[in-house]
Design a protein around this nucleic acid. Structure first.
Lengths: 340, 340
DNA sequence: CCCCACGATGACTACGTAGTCGCTATGTCT
DNA sequence: AGACATAGCGACTACGTAGTCATCGTGGGG
C-alpha cells in the first residue's frame, strides 16, 4: 500500500455497493448508452451515498486526455492580461476544460521554459501562450498543441495555432493618426516592456503611423506598464515644451503621465493630449476621461479557445482561424488639438 | 490499445534506452539516493534524448498527490482578487505546487459547488477559497483540506484552515474614523456586492465605527465594484447636500464616485471627501490622489500558502495560523475637513 | 579467509479508469 | 419455430509510476 491515509471511494466501491461491475459505473458516469434507467439510478444512488467522484488522474492516465489547458502568461497583475485570463477561464469552463496557470515573472530567473515544463508535467491537452514571448532563448520543445494569441512564438510543437495578430497593430496606428489629425506635429510614445509582444507591436504601429505621414519620430520611452512608470516618464516629457501629444501603450501609464503633466502645470488636453490603450473600466472616470483603445478580450478569449478546442476535438478538420476581433478607438476628453 | 495517437515517451522507454530498469529511472527522477553517479547520468542522457517528462497523472494515481492546489474565486477581473491570484500563483510555484483556477461568476448560474466539483475531479491536494462565499446554499462537502482567506465558509472538509479574518475589518474602521476625525458628522458608504465576504466585512466595520461614535448611520448603497456603479451611486449621493464624506468599498467605485461629484460641481475634498479601499496602483495618480487602504495581498498569499503547504506536508504539526497581514491607511488628497 | 552488512539495482505489483470482447436474455424476422 | 440481431452487462486488461522486497556484488571485521 502506497498511501496510508484513506483515499476517496473508487468506482469499484460504488460498483460493489450498487451490485454491478466497475465497468458499468464507468458507463453511467460517461453517459454511455446501453444502461438501463434502473441500473443507472441505482449506480447514481450508490455514488451519491459514498460521495464518489471519478478520478481524473486515472482517466488521464488511460486516455491521455486531461481536460485541462495550460496558460502561460507574463504576470497577470495588469488589467489586460488579467481580464484576458478571466475570459479564458470562462470560455474554457464552457468547453469543459479547466485552466492551469503558469506565470513567468519579470523578476524571476526561471523563464518561460520552466513555466511550460511545469504545465507539461502536470498534464495538459494544450498550451496557450497569452503573450508570445521572445526571450531570445532557444525554442522550447512541447509535445502538445500550442495556441498563441499574437505573434509567432519560438516554440516547437506538433501544432501551433495562432490567433490573427492584428491586435494592437491597427488600433495603435489609428490612435496615432487620430492625434496627428488633430493637428499635432508628432506623437510621443511611452512603450511597454519590450519583452511583451503587445508592447513591441504597439510601438511598431505607432512608429509606422508616424513615418507614413512623414512626421518626426521621437525617441520612444519605455515604461513597465505601471502608472508609476508613466508618471516618471511623464515628468521627463513634461519638461519638453515641444511635446504636445503622447500615446501610452496602456491606460495605467497614460494616467500616470497625465498626473505628471498636471503637476508640471500643463493642461490635458489643452497643452498636451494623452491617449492610452486597453480601455480599462476606470478610463471613463478619471480626469480628464481618457481617449483609449477598447480591446475585446472576452471575444479574443472566446474565439481563441473555441478555435483550440475545435482542433483538439478533431485535428483533421481545423476550422479557419477566427476573424480578428475588433478594436475600437474611444475618443474621450484627454485628446484635443494642440495649443495654438 | 486505447489511444491511437502517439503518446509521449514513458519511463520504461527511457529505461530501455539507458539499459536500466524502469524503477531506476523513477529513482533518478525522484532524486532518491542509492543511484550511482554513472547510472544517473546515463539515465538523464537517455531521458534528454527521448524528451521524457514524468507523467503526472500516473504519479498522482499511485501516490494520491497531485502537487496542485485549486483556487475558487469570484471573478478575478477586479484588482483585489486578481493581484491576490497572481501572488498565490507565485507562492505556489515556489512551493512546487501548480494552481488551477475556477471562477464563479455573478452572472453564472452554476455556483460555487460546480466550481469545487470541477476542481475535485481534476484532482487537487487542497482548495483555497479566496472569497468565503455565502450563497446560502447547503454546505459543500469536500474531501481535501480547505484554506479560506477570510471568514468561515459553509464547507464540510476534513480540515478547514483559515487565515485570520481581520482583513478589511480594522482598516475599514480606521478609514471611517479618519473621516470622522476630520470633522465629518457621518460617513456614507458605497458597499460591494453582498455576495462577497470582503464587501460584507467592510460594510460591517464601517457600520461599527459609526455606531461606536454615535454618528448617524446612513443607508449604505450597494455597487458592484465597478467604477461605473460608483459613478451612478455617486450621482445619487451628489444630490444630497448633507453628504460630506464617502467611504467606498474599493478604489474603482471611489473614483467613479469622484467623477460623479465633479460632474455635479462638488469639489473633492473641498465639498466631499472620498476614500477607497485596495490602494490600486492608479490610486496615487488620479485627481485628486485617493485616500485608501493598502492591502498586502502578496503577504496574505504568501502566508496563506505557506500555512497550507506546511499542513499538507505534515498534518500532525500544523503551525499556528500566521499573523494577520498589515493594512495601512494611506491618506492622500481626496479626504479633508468638511466645508465650513 | 569466510561471513555479513550494505550499497546498487531489478522484479513485481497496485493505483482507478475505460476499451475490447464475450456472454446472456430478449425479442424479431422469416 | 428456429436462426439471428441486439441490448445490457461483466471479465479482463493496459496506462506509467513508485512501494516493497529480493538479489547481486563488494569490502571489512572476526
Amino acid at each position: 500500500m502506497v498511501d496510508a491515509g484513506k483515499r476517496p471511494p473508487s468506482g469499484t466501491a460504488v460498483a460493489l455497493l450498487a451490485g454491478v461491475s466497475q465497468k458499468t459505473v464507468s458507463r453511467v458516469f460517461n453517459n454511455e448508452p446501453s444502461v438501463t434507467e434502473e441500473t443507472r439510478t441505482r449506480v447514481l444512488a450508490a455514488a451519491q451515498q459514498l460521495g464518489y467522484r471519478p478520478n481524473g488522474a486515472a482517466r488521464a492516465l488511460l486516455t491521455g486526455r486531461h481536460d485541462r489547458i495550460g496558460v502561460v502568461s507574463l504576470s497577470t497583475a495588469h488589467y489586460g492580461p488579467s481580464s484576458l485570463l478571466v475570459a479564458l477561464e470562462r470560455a474554457a469552463r464552457r468547453a469543459n476544460y479547466s485552466l492551469i496557470v503558469a506565470n513567468s515573472f519579470d523578476d524571476d530567473a526561471s523563464g518561460i521554459k520552466a513555466a511550460v515544463d511545469n504545465l507539461l508535467v502536470q498534464g495538459v491537452d494544450a498550451i496557450i501562450l497569452s503573450e508570445p514571448i521572445d526571450d531570445g532563448e532557444a525554442p522550447i520543445t512541447v509535445d502538445v498543441p500550442v495556441l498563441t494569441l499574437g505573434g509567432a512564438p519560438s516554440v516547437q510543437a506538433p501544432t501551433v495555432l495562432s490567433m490573427p495578430a492584428a491586435e494592437g497593430g491597427a488600433a495603435a496606428t489609428e490612435v496615432t493618426r487620430h492625434l496627428l489629425a488633430l493637428g499635432h506635429r508628432t506623437v510621443h510614445h511611452i512603450a511597454g516592456p519590450q519583452r511583451w509582444w503587445a508592447a513591441r507591436e504597439r510601438q511598431r504601429s505607432w512608429h509606422e503611423a508616424l513615418t507614413a505621414t512623414n512626421a518626426a519620430v521621437p525617441q520612444a520611452l519605455t515604461g513597465d506598464w505601471t502608472p508609476r512608470s508613466g508618471y516618471e516618464l511623464g515628468r521627463e516629457l513634461a519638461r519638453d515644451p515641444d511635446v504636445t501629444a503622447i500615446f501610452a501603450a496602456n491606460d495605467d501609464m497614460a494616467i500616470g503621465a497625465i498626473h505628471a503633466l498636471h503637476e508640471a502645470g500643463r493642461q490635458v488636453p489643452g497643452d498636451v493630449s494623452v491617449a492610452g490603450f486597453d480601455d480599462i473600466p476606470l478610463a471613463a472616470h478619471v480626469t480628464p476621461p481618457l481617449t483609449t483603445v477598447s480591446t475585446d478580450n472576452a471575444e479574443l478569449a472566446e474565439n481563441g479557445l473555441h478555435y483550440l478546442t475545435a482542433f483538439l476535438a478533431d485535428p483533421d478538420h481545423v476550422p479557419a482561424a477566427p476573424q480578428t476581433h475588433q478594436h475600437r478607438i474611444i475618443v474621450r476628453n484627454s485628446t484635443g488639438p494642440p495649443p495654438t
